[in-house]
Amino acid sequence: MLENKDKFIATWSFLTTFPAPKTAQETSPQLSMMPLVGLGLGLTFYIAAWLLSGFNPAVTGLLLLILWLGSTGFLHLDGLADLSDALGASHGDRTRFLEVLKAPDIGSFAVIALILAILSKLVFLSVLGFAEVFAPLLLIPAWARLGAAWWVNELPPLHEGLATWLLDAGEANLTPWLITLLILSLLFAPILLLAPVILWAWKLFLEHKVQGMNGDCLGAGIEICEILLLALCCLTL
C-alpha cells in the first residue's frame, strides 16, 4: 500500500504542478497511476467549478481554463505546439518532420494550434458553466491520461530521449481502469462512454501519420482528447 502511495505521489508530481509530499528518490512515475492522477485533477476541476458556479458562466469558464492549463504547467500545450509545427512544416518529409519536432523554437502552425486549443477549451467550459453541468469534469482528465498510458503500450518511440520510466514500464495493466471509467461514466456522464473511440482514433492517427510516439505526441494527445471530450459533452446539452 505504501509503495503504491509513493508511486502515485511520484506520478502526480511529474504530471502536475500541485505540491506533493516527497517520496524515496528511487520511486518513479507509473503508467498505471496516470488515470488516478487524472481523477485527482478532475475532482479538483469539479470542486472549483462548483465553487465558481455563482459567477457569470463566461468568467467561470475562464477561471477553470486557467486552472486546467496551469495545473500541468502548460506541458501538454507545449507538446501540441511542437507536433503541430512538425506536421505542418514537414509536408510529408519524414526526416524534416523529426527535425522540426526536435527544434526548440515554434512557428506559425504551433501558434495557430495553441490559439485554437485554448479558445476551444474556453468555449466548451463556458458552455458547461451556462448549463451548470460539471460532472464530466470529473472524468475527462482521467480518460485522456488513460489514453496516454495506452498509447505508450501500443506504439514504438520515435527517438531516444523519451522518459525512462515510460520506456521501461512494460505493458501496464490498464483494463481495470478502463472498466472503472466506463462504470463512472455510465453513472455520471453517459456520453463519455464514447471516450474509448476518441482514444482509439488518436492512436490510429499516431500509428499512420506519425508512425510512433514521443512526449510531444502524448501531450498533444491529452490536449486533443480533452477538447474532443468536452465538445462531445457540450453537444448533448
Rank of each mutant, 00 (worst) to 15 (best):
L155I: 02
C217A: 12
L114C: 05
N214W: 08
G215K: 06
A172T: 03
M213F: 15
G219I: 03
S71L: 09
L64A: 15
C225G: 12
L193D: 11
L43T: 11
F134G: 05
A117V: 02
G215D: 05
N153R: 08
S28K: 04
L167G: 13
M34D: 14
K7I: 13
L178W: 13
Q211L: 07
L194E: 04
G147I: 00
A220K: 06
L235D: 03
L77F: 13
T72K: 08
L146I: 06
A49Y: 08
I9C: 10
A142G: 03
E207W: 10
L139M: 02
S32F: 11
G38C: 07
C233T: 07
L62V: 15
P176F: 00
S108F: 11
A144S: 15
S108P: 05
F18Q: 14
S71G: 09
N173P: 14
F55V: 14
L184T: 01
H208A: 02
L15N: 09
G73N: 10
G88Q: 08
A110S: 12
L31H: 13
F55Q: 10
F14Y: 05
T236D: 04
P104M: 13
L116M: 09
L206M: 04
A48K: 10
K5I: 11
G212W: 02
T180Q: 01
F14A: 07
L87V: 14
L235M: 10
A220W: 08
L31Y: 11
P157G: 01
M1R: 12
E99R: 06
A110G: 11
R145F: 03
I183R: 09
L155H: 07
V111K: 14
T44K: 11
S185G: 00
S71D: 10
G61D: 12
S120F: 06
E207L: 08
F97P: 14
F45A: 04
M33A: 15
C234I: 10
I140Y: 02
T164I: 01
A131T: 15
T236C: 06
G161V: 02
E171H: 12
A142D: 03
A195R: 03
L162P: 04
L36S: 07
A117E: 09
E3T: 09
N4P: 02
L146K: 09
P21K: 12
E171W: 00
V100H: 05
L80C: 08
F55T: 14
L228V: 04
T27M: 06
V37S: 05
V152F: 06
L187C: 05
F205E: 02
L2T: 09
T236W: 09
L235K: 02
L138Q: 08
E207I: 02
Q30C: 05
W200I: 01
G170Y: 01
L31F: 14
G40F: 07
M34G: 12
P35L: 07
F8C: 03
S13Q: 13
W165G: 05
V210R: 00
K22Q: 15
I47T: 13
S28G: 01
L218V: 10
